[in-house]
């Protein structure tokens, strides 16, 4: 057998490293899961704006004393028909601020549920004395 020719070892080594690199990349590529459910889908699905809108509206109405039975019915029915959400609103009473404080509070419970996301808040709505 001929004696091994050990010239050009670096070139051989680099070639080998490159091929291992390509192999590794291919492996990583095949492991990366394909997603039909992308981040943007999750963002579109998450009802952030609906919850914020509902919450802001209810708090505004409570602040301005505009809540009536008809309004609550409107809210429930519209949220169900247009946003597929079951919403609830419970009035938990007035809380008088301590003497000298600037605000009284109305204690309310807000909930929003569209099957995917559930939001519940116990909220003290301030009202100027």
């Amino acid at each position: 057998m001929e004696r091994l020719n050990d010239e050009g070892q670096w070139i051989v080594l680099m070639g080998f490293l490159v091929s291992v690199g390509i192999f590794f990349l291919a492996f990583v590529l095949s492991q990366s899961t394909l997603v039909g459910q992308t981040t943007s889908d999750a963002v579109l699905e998450f009802p952030k704006n609906e919850i914020r809108d509902y919450r802001a509206e209810v708090i505004d109405l409570v602040k301005e004393d505009k809540i009536t039975d008809a309004i609550i019915k409107d809210l429930k029915s519209l949220e169900l028909h247009r946003n597929n959400a079951v919403v609830n609103f419970t009035y938990l009473g007035e809380i008088t601020g301590s003497p000298g404080s600037l605000y009284d509070y109305t204690k309310i419970n807000i909930s929003f549920n569209n099957g995917l996301t559930r939001y519940k808040e116990l909220c003290y709505v301030p009202k100027k004395k």
Binding site: S19, F23, A26, L29, S30, S32
Partner: peptide, 13 residues
């Protein structure tokens, strides 16, 4: 190595 690479690439969507 080439065959294995082809296998992994084809396995990728």
């Amino acid at each position: 190595i080439m065959i294995a690479t082809a296998y992994f690439v084809l396995n990728t969507g």
